[in-house]
Design a binder for these strands. Structure first.
Lengths: 110, 110
DNA sequence: AATACCGCTATCTTTTAGGATACTGCAAAA
DNA sequence: TTTTGCAGTATCCTAAAAGATAGCGGTATT
């Protein structure tokens, strides 16, 4: 039964890693932490991502209710991507991850 | 310069996600949290992993100083894999991840 | 009217992760 | 001495992720 508990935890970890893992998703979320952005703005921010991939990842993040997409009806500009409240709730976790990552780099390189 | 800071953070996030991401690395670390294990013991524990993959992942984790490999010189048995102190330091982070994951499931399903 | 930026979509190719399977060298047990 | 378990390595194959490139409909700019 401790084993079953462990199984459940593994599933949770896997879920989360799916969401913030992969080449781009973490970076997209981090970029949106800063402030809401437009498609091409994100694209420039992320550097080498292709539009195909960015579209796909944004849709995935939308499906998971971490990011919301709003097209401005009239007037002009365009589309805005931003973090939902749920997306923002990832912030502290990302902070923890960053902190551990910095420690890790010291351990591995130092 | 805030931008540069952000870049660094993105790299940290990427590093960490590499380490605990993927199909197996998280599971291997979790299995070793429990106690030190031998190669085939790990293999059985993880169920469907192939030896090729297990070897590769263990080497990766060793390189990153999260896991240590000790071959018992004489006597008999064999090789023991265990978490290093650095590896153990991941534990709280994984706890955070699990916690967020559980919240997440409620948001997405509930 | 032409150019340029925006937010994509479509197609094709490459890269990577990981599974399937077979095999090896070694030691201990039967 | 055959078999069994341990700790892997070697080869081949597949599926999925991501890159490269081109294009499209719309708006705003000159």
């Amino acid at each position: 039964m401790r084993n079953k508990q462990k199984q459940v935890q593994l599933r949770d970890v896997q879920d989360v890693l799916d969401i913030i893992g992969g080449r781009w998703r973490g970076a997209i979320l981090a970029s949106l932490c800063d402030k809401e952005k437009r498609f091409n703005e994100l694209k420039r921010d992320l550097g080498s991502i292709t539009p195909r991939t960015l579209t796909k990842e944004l849709k995935y993040l939308e499906m998971n209710k971490l990011v919301s997409r709003e097209a401005e009806a009239s007037g002009g500009a365009s589309v805005l991507y931003s973090l939902t409240a749920h997306g923002k709730s990832l912030n502290p976790l990302i902070g923890q991850i960053v902190a551990w990552g910095q420690k890790h780099r010291k351990v591995v390189l130092g």
